[in-house]
Design a protein around this nucleic acid. Structure first.
Lengths: 169, 169
DNA sequence: GTAAGAAGGTTTAAATTTGAAGCACTTAGT
DNA sequence: ACTAAGTGCTTCAAATTTAAACCTTCTTAC
């Protein structure tokens, strides 16, 4: 069956244009992640991904989500989430709660201070995202970017629920 | 003078469509980085960025580059590079050499074993990039992606040389 | 019922990243 | 020359990430 790949035969290398595209992608994403990490570390004392976790909770009913759901939403491993929530808990932005239905389960809950911090940090973050991304692109480019990224994300993540990523290992 | 920004006044929030675009971006980039890191960790025993460093050296005259140049090329801090090269040196893929002209300077040099390892890992990596990205996009989308990423990268990195990033802190 | 296995999360140890500090050398300016 | 400032790079300690191992608590299939 050889589902893995075809480890043999000369691969189809990237041509010059593809190389340029790929490098631009790597550079842009590296620089932007870095930029946002710094912006949020400075203004909110946490990296971008942690901020995303708080946002994820803020949007959810009762400002809470099961650990695994949050991990899926943020596209990170459960292990990484576990550490992250532990840290956010130390900061008082998040609280853990047992799940009544499933004794194994845990909820991550956004606290009031957590929500406040989010409100405080959000404006600066949006500004940063606009400055670095939206303000530099035409409406067509924005639309195109959205489609492209949607395609790539879906390709790496077999449709939402049915994800056969075990949840990310 | 308040050069920083305008920390005041209600910010222009992202509308629904912008939100979708931004989230797709974050998800896709997170998943792809993760995917490539795993692929390369499995096939080459190193994360994606380390692989990029070896490629950077392989392309350079004499397979060598000054630390700072390599850091710029890879868009990472000197500190991070220092650690990375130390690790690659332990693996025997890279060797450090003093710079004759400037006694402070160091060259990172790709070794023969390093080049071999690169040759061995490259096919799988290209395949992964194609599978996840190029094969899923139309030629127009690829072109658009290239333009968009070029714009974003340039925006975050005041033209190449004249970068006023001190080199990234 | 119950044992085997899956699911939900956490923990451990090692690897990597970060930001600040610290050296050693260079360069500019006097 | 001579010193203050700047460069180039490394190191330190703390924070984060990773993968694997490990509990518990469900679920399933006898």
């Amino acid at each position: 069956m050889n589902t893995a790949s075809v480890p043999d035969e000369e691969p189809r290398w990237l041509d010059d244009e593809e190389q340029r595209i790929w490098r631009s992608y790597v550079h842009a994403t590296t620089l932007l992640e870095d930029h946002l990490d710094r912006q949020l570390q400075r203004d909110a004392g946490m990296p971008h991904i942690y901020y995303g976790l708080l946002v994820g909770l803020a949007e959810s009913p009762d400002r809470r989500l099961r650990m695994t759901e949050l991990a899926m939403k943020a596209k990170i491993t459960r292990s990484r989430l576990s550490h992250a929530i532990a840290r956010l808990e130390r900061n008082g932005w998040v609280r853990r709660e047992d799940c009544p239905d499933d004794k194994r389960g845990q909820f991550a809950v956004l606290t009031d201070p957590g929500l406040e911090m989010l409100k405080g940090a959000a404006p600066g973050h949006v500004r940063a995202v606009r400055n670095a991304l939206f303000d530099r692109l035409t409406p067509e480019q924005q639309k195109s970017l959205g489609e492209i990224m949607r395609i790539v994300a879906e390709g790496l993540q077999p449709d939402e629920a049915g994800a056969d990523l075990p949840w990310l290992r």
